[in-house]
Nucleic acid binder design. Structure first.
Length: 211
DNA sequence: GACCAGGCACATC
DNA sequence: GATGTGCATGGT
């Protein structure tokens, strides 16, 4: 069975309107946000980013120079702060050692190579890598997350056993290879998930995606 | 006070 | 390769 994912996208877009993702003023800020929001409510990640901005360290070299203790203190509201400090610093080492601290230079690397490189960083898995590629660098890398899996399996588009790569292929094969569409689609899925497809108490009756 | 949130690495079987 | 566990905060 082949579901019209383009149609799904159009309906969500018509229902919710533009989502204006990802909130952030630079590729670096978006990348940091992608790590800080792992398994975490965005509002908590945003508190941490606000702290980094206030200290004027939302910049690769400055943040690295800041050191672990101070970084951990600033990103505390995002949760898992010791773990995320390590992860941020692993990412920073890549940016600094391979690209001289320039996200601009990093963004010139072709998608497949850059994705592989990001996945070598401790703490960057497929979702975080794809979020950085899509939202920080504007590359057509489709982001799959818990909402995508939950919604698609509840609507019987996929089984709940599918792996990350399988769900990603499923979507990529059914959508135009356009970063603008990938961007909006994922944001709309998250919006739908938050409003209609909660873990325990789904108000699925009124779901705009009656498939 | 329980439950949840825009994951990932690592241990163990 | 599948399954389980640690990581931690702030909002509802």
């Amino acid at each position: 069975m082949s579901v019209d994912l383009r149609g799904v996208y159009k309906r969500l877009a018509a229902h919710f309107g533009p989502q204006h993702w990802w909130p952030g003023d630079s590729a670096f800020e978006i990348s940091v946000g992608a790590i800080l929001t792992q398994n975490t409510n965005w509002s908590n990640a945003a508190l941490a980013i606000a702290n980094l901005k206030k200290e004027r360290v939302l910049h690769p070299a400055r943040l690295y120079k800041l050191g672990s203790r101070k970084t951990a203190q600033l990103i505390r509201p995002s949760g898992y702060y010791r773990l995320k400090t390590k992860r941020l610093r692993s990412f920073l080492r890549l940016v600094i050692s391979s690209y001289g601290g320039s996200l601009m230079r990093m963004g010139r690397v072709p998608l497949p190579e850059l994705r592989s490189e990001l996945l070598t960083v401790n703490g960057i898995g497929p979702e975080t890598a794809d979020s950085i590629l899509l939202y920080a660098f504007g590359k057509p890398s489709f982001v799959v997350d818990a909402y995508t899996k939950r919604i698609f399996s509840r609507h019987h588009l996929i089984s709940d056993l599918e792996t990350y790569d399988e769900v990603q292929s499923y979507c990529v094969e059914r959508l135009p290879q356009d970063p603008g569409i990938f961007n909006e689609f994922h944001a709309l899925i998250v919006r739908l998930g938050k409003e209609y497809c909660l873990k325990n108490n789904p108000k699925c009756n009124s779901c705009p995606l009656a498939l």
